[in-house]
């Protein structure tokens, strides 16, 4: 069994991913899409970032004890993603299901490069990833995203705020710098990976309609027949 590189996997299923900074609204949109696909009779499999049972404890411990460097942060997240790929993504795609992923390799590319990792190196690390059928980038201006996060969460976590990078003493300030860098990286990736940009400042239903329009182009009746419900 040899490793298959990005863009070379051929599976009957479909893979849709959402990307964007924290507070861009991507998770809300993905769960709405999930509901719709299920009600349409498709077999849907959901996979989210940082969810590997094999890696979870290591990540949690490392965050708590602040053991990460940009390189080990990057590699441990890649390990987690590899487990997701081998367990949650490839098997359902082979079985002809629709896989929805909340955050994908582009999250790693944005965060790790913002932390100083080499662009080409990070892309190489994730070369085994399956290329999505479509990748949606929910783009929200920095201040909008930050306001949304501030409203929902009382305190920023150490790595989330990029405090490991010594950009600022203040967590909120550091977070803004970090998110700004991440947004720049996402903007670079729009053309590089053909991300579908959705304006995250639009009404929720408007965004969902745009998303469903695009997704429906890749759906076939055959996908429903594959797994009878």
């Amino acid at each position: 069994m040899n490793m298959i590189s990005y863009g070379h996997h051929r599976y009957p299923g479909r893979l849709f991913v959402v990307e964007g900074t924290d507070g861009s609204g991507k998770s809300t949109q993905l769960s709405l899409l999930h509901q719709w696909l299920k009600s349409e009779g498709y077999s849907v499999f959901f996979s989210e970032w940082n969810s590997s049972p094999l890696v979870k404890d290591t990540t949690r411990r490392a965050k708590k004890r602040r053991l990460f460097t940009p390189t080990t942060f990057s590699l441990l997240h890649a390990t987690d993603f590899a487990d997701r790929t081998e367990r949650d993504i490839i098997p359902p795609l082979k079985a002809g299901a629709i896989v929805l992923a909340d955050r994908y390799i582009y999250t790693a590319f944005a965060r790790d490069v913002a932390r100083g990792c080499d662009r080409a190196w990070v892309r190489e690390v994730y070369k085994f990833a399956v290329k999505p059928t479509a990748a949606f980038f929910f783009r929200a201006p920095l201040d909008v995203a930050i306001d949304r996060i501030a409203a929902g969460r009382p305190q920023l976590k150490f790595y989330e705020a990029g405090m490991d990078m010594d950009w600022a003493d203040d967590e909120e300030e550091s977070f803004k710098i970090f998110q700004g860098k991440i947004l720049d990286e996402y903007d670079h990736m729009v053309n590089e990976f053909g991300l579908t940009v959705i304006d995250g400042t639009q009404a929720i239903r408007t965004q969902q309609r745009q998303m469903r329009e695009i997704v429906s182009r890749f759906l076939k009746e055959k996908l429903k027949e594959k797994v009878p419900i």
Binding site: L54, T69, T72, L75, L76, A82, D83, E86
Partner: peptide
């Protein structure tokens, strides 16, 4: 657990290596 996928295992080793190299 013997449930470690092949790619996952290689990247776990790489993480271990990077940690020892840097620290």
């Amino acid at each position: 657990g013997h449930t470690l996928g092949r790619l996952t295992m290689q990247l776990y080793y790489a993480t271990d290596f990077a940690d020892r190299l840097e620290n």
